[in-house]
Design a protein around this nucleic acid. Structure first.
Lengths: 180, 180
DNA sequence: CGCAACATGTAAGCGGTTACATGATTAC
DNA sequence: GTAATCATGTAACCGCTTACATGTTGCG
């Protein structure tokens, strides 16, 4: 499952431009599937070439033509095939955790800074989740609600863990064990 | 922070071969930083070329020479620089969540299968964490214990969330909201 | 006056994955 | 006998990131 497939999936919710899709990648999909314009625009071109989406050019003054994409029947078929994987991956790549593995090589000030930045990050996500929930989640498919709830639950777990266990990383207290 | 830097960090714990490091990437680092031989061996070669590690060739019969790497003073300096990033990233890339966004396009059997496979995955991780804790975590640096605890906490949160909210994805119950 | 939002794209490069290549030893 | 473990590597490929390129409209 790559950016192309996710774009295709987003288009099942209605027509959209690359610019529109980018906003989805930043908000609702942001916590588990990042993508920039450099991935999205080529993905849409490629989908159009394969006939999986159709494209309507809407001329605009001053701005480039707005290109609105719609999923085709072939696109739907393709998407359903892509969703058949019975064990889709769920990968974490964390420079944060890699850094924390070597906390004993760093100054405690540095470690504190890193932990603070991680907590800020989780707070940004939590704010975003609340905002999304406010402006109407009830018209969304159940899967989307499940996914948002997942993001919230995991983010809260991360925040709580970091807050409750950051004392482990102070050199003074080497013998303690993690709070569950 | 790339595979190279993580390898360098692992070598602060004592000399090791590429093969040894791979095992670390599978066990202790597995839940947040994956790497295969195709990344590790070139990384070590490159580190040696830059003088960040030294390499001892140990001849063996039948097998290729065992190459044991040790971090150098230059390597230590380099690592400390790399650890200075005050806001290291923590990224999730989840085909699982992407799939679940479109659960309404799938059969409930397919959805169930995907959810089961995710739970199995979390269980494998939890077993691994327990095993690691058993064979002596107390001699590890506090950072490593923090990271393992993080992995366990988040994995448990994932498992609980999936178990408690999978009913949201059954088409029958569209109006429900997520259990916190 | 400057910044954010609107709007699309290209191209180089990087980092990692996957498949391939080889082969002895040990445990079941 | 066959699978796992030990042990190292290369090369092609793929997908994504980053930087670059361009220009208008509207808000404060």
């Amino acid at each position: 499952m790559d950016v192309k497939t996710v774009c295709l999936g987003m288009l099942t919710d209605g027509e959209a431009s690359g610019y529109d899709l980018k906003k989805h990648f930043e908000s609702t999909f942001g916590h588990f599937f990042a993508a920039g314009y450099g991935s999205i625009y080529p993905a849409l071109s490629s989908l159009a070439e394969q006939g999986l989406v159709s494209c309507e050019h809407i001329p605009q003054e001053g701005k480039p033509d707005r290109k609105v994409y719609q999923i085709t029947t072939a696109g739907h078929t393709y998407l359903l095939k892509a969703l058949e994987d019975p064990a889709p991956s769920h990968k974490v790549r964390s420079e944060f955790l890699a850094t924390m593995c070597f906390a004993h090589l760093m100054s405690s000030e540095q470690v504190e800074l890193v932990l603070d930045s991680r907590i800020e990050d989780t707070e940004r996500y939590l704010t975003m989740f609340s905002k999304i929930e406010c402006d109407g989640m009830q018209d969304w498919p159940p899967g989307m609600r499940f996914v948002l709830g997942f993001g919230r639950a995991v983010t809260e777990a991360v925040k709580a863990y970091v807050e409750n266990n950051r004392h482990l990383l102070a050199e003074e207290h080497k013998a303690q064990t993690a709070i569950r």
